[in-house]
């Protein structure tokens, strides 16, 4: 019998990139959030090095405001695949006086994560951080290179990026610099979901429709929980919802949905008229996103 491997071009490209990271850098790390994109990255990394183990650790920058489901899922995955997991906590950065906790209605630890991440990079001398950002997510991300050089302060010099020609990746850097690597740059949201489906990849239950205590604010659906600030008049209701993207509880809104299988999730995304980032409270700067959140509430 002749069995022929016909490559999936996007998967093959991502594996090529991940192998370049392992070959070109001394201390790479995979930034793991527990969301679908970083779970997809783990599968791609497994494929890149099989039957050997993934030759770098995972780093989770924990806000302590994660959905409990995410943490349970993370620990199971690490255990099952025998991965090395490093956790660094935003709480520690707060305790050390490096960052100050936000207060009030829209308070979130989302932006505080950056300090904790940069400290972890310095602590472990990581020279490459693999992330799950995709170019289709957002206009500025559409401009990212696959190997994106950052200076000592973690800054992106967007007007002066290294040209990236053909599939040749130049990861050479000076002491103190590091590279952010985006292996699934060229995937769309739908590509990720279809991949999860064909590969039968396990994902946290948050992505499927479930009953949850929530409240409505600015047309968005917020999780009712001790970590999420809520005004007395904001009434808690039980709704059937799911999450389209999973960050921490203070910055990720749910959508009303009855999609409880991968098939129905894929169908829902295909016919969606708002973008994935539309349900991110951290993207609230733009007015249009606000208006759309109102629509999400009615859905």
């Amino acid at each position: 019998m002749s069995n022929i491997l016909i490559p999936n071009p996007k998967e093959a490209e991502s594996i090529h990139i991940i192998r370049e990271v392992a070959a070109q850098f001394e201390r790479p790390v995979l930034l793991f959030s527990g969301g679908k994109d970083s779970i997809t990255l783990v599968r791609l990394a497994q494929k890149a090095f099989y039957p050997a183990r993934i030759p770098f650790p995972l780093l989770h920058v924990d806000t302590d405001h994660n959905f409990p489901e995410t943490i349970v899922f993370r620990d199971q995955l690490v255990e099952e695949l025998g991965l090395e997991l490093i956790v660094r906590k935003v709480q520690d950065s707060i305790d050390q006086g490096k960052v100050r906790e936000e207060k009030g209605k829209y308070s979130s630890r989302n932006t505080l994560q950056t300090t904790t991440l940069l400290d972890a990079i310095e602590e472990f001398k990581f020279d490459a951080c693999i992330g799950g950002a995709r170019r289709d997510e957002e206009k500025a991300r559409a401009k990212e290179r696959i190997f994106s050089v950052r200076d000592d302060f973690g800054q992106w010099d967007e007007k002066n990026q290294r040209p990236e020609l053909f599939d040749m990746l130049n990861g050479r850097i000076h002491q103190g610099q590091n590279v952010r690597v985006f292996p699934i740059s060229n995937w769309t949201e739908l590509d990720v979901w279809e991949y999860i489906k064909t590969e039968n990849i396990r994902i946290p239950s948050l992505y499927f429709a479930h009953k949850r205590e929530v409240f409505f604010r600015d047309g968005m659906i917020w999780t009712a929980n001790e970590h999420v600030y809520r005004e007395p008049h904001e009434e808690v209701l039980e709704e059937t919802v799911r999450f389209r993207t999973v960050g921490d509880m203070t910055c990720t809104a749910a959508v009303l949905s009855t999609a409880d299988t991968l098939d129905s999730v894929v169908e829902e995304i295909k016919s969606s008229t708002i973008s994935e980032r539309g349900a991110r409270i951290d993207d609230k700067r733009s007015e249009a996103a606000m208006e759309n959140r109102k629509k999400v509430g009615y859905f």
Binding site: L5, P7, I15, P51
Partner: peptide, 12 residues
């Protein structure tokens, strides 16, 4: 975790 007889161009 699979083995193949033939790999087509573009395969990693």
């Amino acid at each position: 975790d699979q083995t193949y007889e033939v790999a087509q161009p573009g395969s990693s």
